[in-house]
């Protein structure tokens, strides 16, 4: 039962993720990406991490993708305005993607050997446990992430205000 659900979700996730890249219309890409996020949220629920699933939907599907869609709709994207890329760019892109592939394969190979080391606590995804873990074991990365966001916000304000008097 769980395996069947997992397989369905995984297949949909992969297909929609491919469609994100392959579809011509950027708005369609965004919509496929939203579907991908939904399947990922479903996978979180399978892992008994409801909180993560819901936060994933709220943050990614509910806010970030709305912003993506918002920007896509404002841009005038059609065939005439599509920039013509030179061949140099295409070759560069192919090389970069190939390198990423090599890196990923290398990382995966290492991962397989590790196996799922120990059966993780199945209750770790629940709100209370997650909160405890975040504010005890991982409090430093958590706070650093917070500061990172603050820095990003300040940077965005700086970029947005062209003639800011400092």
């Amino acid at each position: 039962m769980t395996l069947a659900i997992f397989l369905t979700l995984a297949v949909i996730a992969v297909i929609t993720a491919l469609l994100v890249v392959l579809s011509r219309n950027p708005v369609h890409s965004v919509l496929y990406l939203i579907l991908t996020f939904f399947t990922i949220a479903g996978l979180y629920i399978l892992l008994n991490a409801q909180f993560l699933a819901v936060v994933h939907i709220i943050v990614y599907s509910g806010a970030i993708m709305v912003l993506f869609l918002f920007v896509m709709m404002l841009l005038n994207l059609n065939k005439d305005t599509e920039p013509q890329k030179s061949n140099l760019w295409k070759i560069g892109g192919a090389v970069a993607a190939g390198m990423l592939l090599v890196t990923l394969v290398g990382a995966m190979r290492g991962g397989i050997e590790l196996q799922a080391a120990a059966q993780p606590n199945s209750q770790v995804g629940l709100v209370e446990n997650l909160g405890k873990v975040l504010f005890t074991d991982f409090v430093v990365p958590f706070e650093i992430a917070g500061i990172l966001f603050l820095a990003a916000m300040v940077g965005a304000v700086l970029v947005g205000k062209r003639d800011l008097k400092l």
Binding site: F51, I58, G62, V127
Partner: peptide, 15 residues
């Protein structure tokens, strides 16, 4: 056990 977040999530999808 995350009912209120569920509601927030779905209202955010309504858009």
């Amino acid at each position: 056990n995350i009912g209120i977040l569920y509601i927030l999530g779905f209202t955010s999808l309504g858009v």
